[in-house]
Design a protein around this nucleic acid. Sequence first.
DNA 1: ATCCCGAGGG
DNA 2: CCCTCTGGAT
Length: 216
Amino acid sequence: MTRAQIFEFYRRLAEADPAPETELAWTNPYTLLVAVALSAQATDAGVNKATRALFERVDSPAAMLALGEEGLKAHIKTIGLFNTKAKNVIAAARILVEQHGGVVPRDRAALEALPGVGRKTANVVLNIAFGEETIAVDTHIFRVANRTGLAPGKDVRAVEDRLVRVTPAPFRAHAHHWLILHGRYVCKARRPECWRCPVADLCRFKPKTPAPPAAG
DNA sequence: ATCCCGAGGG
DNA sequence: CCCTCTGGAT
């Protein structure tokens, strides 16, 4: 591909909706925040299924308070950690109504002060809902960055900063999505499949069982 | 049977 | 640092 074609390729990817069923979550800062906060230890399909009906009725902190904790639990029973998540989402809705006029604040400290919202969720909301130049370092990115030596260290802030510095614009977001997928499907937490890793020769991580299974 | 995963608490 | 929460994946 020519350079112009590569730009066009990524431009189209950026404009495409990767998950039509979560359209509301992507365009509404509040439902986006809730969807991301619910996503830990749950499959994407599970969160999509559980939140589709929820977000048809509940698309604001005030509506979430009206639904109530038991009502919310009924929607998210099928995803992991629903008890803790329901409690946190209701408590966060109360703070949003009482302290932020019922809207999601464009402010890192205010976001991270919400129950159930940590650095990763705050970074996703700041980037997707508000266009801030943040990246969300999830466990996949963190693991790949550490194993390879691309961005070693246990300090998430330092890993974020280094990844931003070593990844060239304008495809920074694409590169980080690639890290997530690579960590999920190749550089896995359990049984990493180094034999089919495209950057194994550049990587310092040498697990004890780097060979493929005997039969497929 | 054990690990995953993000946030929070001890 | 350690641990807990949970359904799903392995």
